[in-house]
Each structure stands twice: as C-alpha cells, then as structure tokens.
C-alpha cells in the first residue's frame, strides 16, 4: 500500500500551504484559491490515509466526491458575494483588512470606485 503514502503526505503539505495562504492573503479571490487548495489537501489525506490501511476504499472516495461538490458550491457562493461587494464598493478585500477607517462607515466607497468597470 505504499503508493498511497506520498500522496497522503502531499495532502498534509497542501493543507499547511493552503491554510497559511488563507490567513495571509487579503484579496478575497486569492483566499478562495487558498481555501480550494486546503480542501484538496484534506481530500487527499482522507483518501490516502484510509487506503494505506485498508486498500482501495469506496467510502472515502464517495465522501470526497461530496466534498468536491460542496467546495465548488462554496466557491460559487463566495464569488457571488465578492462580485456584488466589488460592484458596490470597488474593493476586492474586506474593509477591515484594507483600511481600518472603512469600519466607521459613512460611505467611504465613493473615492474608491475608479477600479469599477465603466
């Protein structure tokens, strides 16, 4: 069963990389990419680890299939929110991460819409 071990470890590495990226990035789409990488890492650990012990196992494969579909739904949901947010404010990050004064409200977006299309 040793063919599965390198992939399990690669999964672990992906999780670490993805989580670090998720925490350190500010751009919402970059964080989304990091989320997807972490997810892939989890899926690899799930399948790889189980198959190391018991050989080819349909159960984790089915679970991961579910996970992939959930991940794409999460990505789509996040993108919907990001696009709407961008069209209202011209920002691609969360306000607290970019400029602390945005938290106070009073319509700071007016000065920042140059980036918006048209």
């Amino acid at each position: 069963m040793n063919t599965f071990l390198p992939y399990t470890l690669a999964g672990g590495a992906l999780v670490i990389l993805g989580l670090t990226g998720f925490i350190l990035h500010r751009h919402l789409i970059r964080r989304l990419l990091a989320f997807n990488l972490t997810g892939s890492g989890c899926f690899l650990v799930m399948t790889g680890l189980a198959q190391q012990g018991q050989g080819v196992d349909a159960v984790p494969q089915a679970l991961v299939l579910t996970g992939i579909v959930v991940a794409v739904s999460a990505t789509a949901l996040a993108l919907v929110l990001i696009r709407r947010w961008y069209h209202l404010t011209g920002l691609t990050g969360l306000p607290e991460d970019i400029e602390p004064e945005l938290q106070q409200g009073d319509n700071p977006a007016e000065g920042k819409t140059q980036g918006a299309p048209h």
């Binding site: 789409i29 993108l79 990001i82 696009r83 961008y86 069209h87 011209g90 920002l91 691609t92 920042k112 140059q114 980036g115 918006a116 299309p117």
Partner: peptide, 8 residues
C-alpha cells in the same frame, strides 16, 4: 469573476 474584477 476575474473578467468582472479589475485590480484596484
């Protein structure tokens, strides 16, 4: 999504 977002 990228097509609709320009990098500010």
């Amino acid at each position: 999504a990228l097509g609709h977002l320009r990098q500010p």
